[in-house]
Design a protein around this nucleic acid. Structure first.
Lengths: 192, 192
DNA sequence: CTACCTTGACTGAATTTTCAGTTCGGTGCA
DNA sequence: TGCACCGAACTGAAAATTCAGTCAAGGTAG
C-alpha cells in the first residue's frame, strides 16, 4: 500500500541519516529497503535521481512534520507554540535525529550542488514564514520585516545548534537551553 | 621553504572549498598542489589522514585569521571588535569563502566521521571563548555562564547563516544584517 | 679527493578496491 | 499476458593505494 517506491525513499532517508549523502551506497539502500538493487533502477533513473527525489521527499516531509500541532489537548499559547515548534527539532528520537541529519545533509550538499537549491529555498521559506506567523501572534504590533528577521535568525540558529549537536560538540540539553534563551532574546527584541 | 607538506594542505583547503570534503579526489588534489599522488601518500597515511590534518590546518588558520586586529589605526571599542570579528566571516572574498566553505564542510562531515570531532570541538571552544571574552568587555557584570551562552548562540547563528549564504539561499547583505541584529539582541539580553 | 653508502623527498606506472549501473532468467500474481 | 519484482552475476570506470625506483644532499672510510 505504501508503495515500494516510497519505501525506497524512506529507506534512503534512513541511510542518509546514518551515512550521509556521500556515504549512501545503492546496495546498502537496497538492503535497507528490503529490495533488490535492480528494483531501484527500475524506479529511479540513477543514483542522482534517487538523491534528488529523496531530498525532495525529505523536505516535503519536514514541512508536514513541523505542522503536527493541536492533538485534542488544550490549545497552546502562541509563545508555547513557538517553543514547541522549535524545540521539536532538538530531541533524541530516531525520527527527529533522522530528519535533522538528513536536513543538514541537504543543506550541506546544496553548497556544491545547485540542483538542490530550489527545493531547499522553498522549504526554508515556508518554515521561516510559519515561525514569523507565530511570532506575529506573540507581538501583533511587530513590523513584518522585524518578524521575518527574527524568524530567519531563530531558524538559522536552530540549524546551527542542530549540527553542533549531531556532530557531537554540544549536549542536547545544553542545545535546548541555548535555543530557549535565543527565543527569549528575539521576543524581547520585538517589543520596543 | 613553505614545505610541500604544507602546500598540499593549502591545496586541499582550496579543493575542499571547491568540491567539498565529499568531492575531494586525491588525484585532483595532487594536480592542485602540483605534486604526484604518491607524494600525498608519502606525507599522509591515507585519504582520511589528509582530511584530518587539513581540517586541523584550516581551523588553526581560521583562529589566526579572526585575530587579525590592531593594524596601526585607532583601537576599536569592544562592541566594534565583536561586530568586526563576527561579520568578518560573511564576506565575499575568495579567502573568506574558502575558509567558510571548508569550515562548514568540516562541521557537516563530523556528523558522520567521529575522527574529526575532537579537533572540531577544540577549535569551536577556542572560538566561543574568544567571543565570550569580547562580550565580557562589553558587559563586565555579565555572569560567565550568560556570556558563554551568548557566545555559543552568536557563533552557532553565524554558522547557520553562513551555510545559507553559501548554499545560495540568503544574499550576503541580508545575512550580514541578520547577524548584526542578532548581536544587538544578545547584547541587550546581557544587561538586566 | 673520491668512491661508496645512507636517507629523505619524490615520481610514473601499476595494482587493487569500490561502486554504479546492467543484464537476464525466473517468480508470483492480477 | 504483462506488470512488479528478485537475485546474482557481470561490466566498466573511477578512485584509492602501493611499488619499484630516481635523484640530490650529506656523511664517511680509505
Amino acid at each position: 500500500m505504501a508503495g515500494r517506491r516510497t519505501a525506497i525513499m524512506e529507506a534512503a532517508a534512513r541511510v542518509i541519516a546514518r551515512r550521509g549523502v556521500r556515504g549512501l551506497r545503492v546496495e546498502e539502500l537496497a538492503a535497507e529497503a528490503g529490495v533488490s538493487t535492480a528494483l531501484i533502477y527500475y524506479h529511479f533513473k540513477d543514483r542522482t535521481g534517487i538523491l534528488r527525489q529523496t531530498l525532495e521527499f525529505i523536505s516535503d516531509r519536514a514541512e508536514r512534520y513541523t505542522r503536527q500541532q493541536e492533538a485534542g489537548s488544550e490549545p497552546l499559547s502562541a509563545r508555547e507554540e513557538l517553543e514547541q515548534s522549535l524545540l521539536l527539532e532538538l530531541q533524541d528520537t530516531p525520527e527527529v535525529r533522522e530528519n535533522s541529519t538528513a536536513w543538514g545533509e541537504l543543506r550541506a550538499s546544496a553548497v556544491f550542488e545547485p540542483d538542490l537549491r530550489e527545493d531547499l529555498a522553498r522549504a526554508t521559506l515556508v518554515w521561516v514564514q510559519e515561525i514569523a506567523e507565530i511570532l506575529g501572534r506573540i507581538q501583533p504590533m511587530g513590523s513584518a520585516v522585524a518578524l521575518a528577521g527574527a524568524a530567519e535568525r531563530l531558524t538559522a540558529l536552530l540549524e546551527g545548534l542542530s549540527v553542533r549537536w549531531l556532530s557531537g560538540g554540544l549536549p542536547l540539553d545544553h542545545a535546548r537551553a541555548l535555543m530557549a534563551a535565543g527565543i527569549d532574546a528575539e521576543i524581547a527584541r520585538l517589543r520596543p
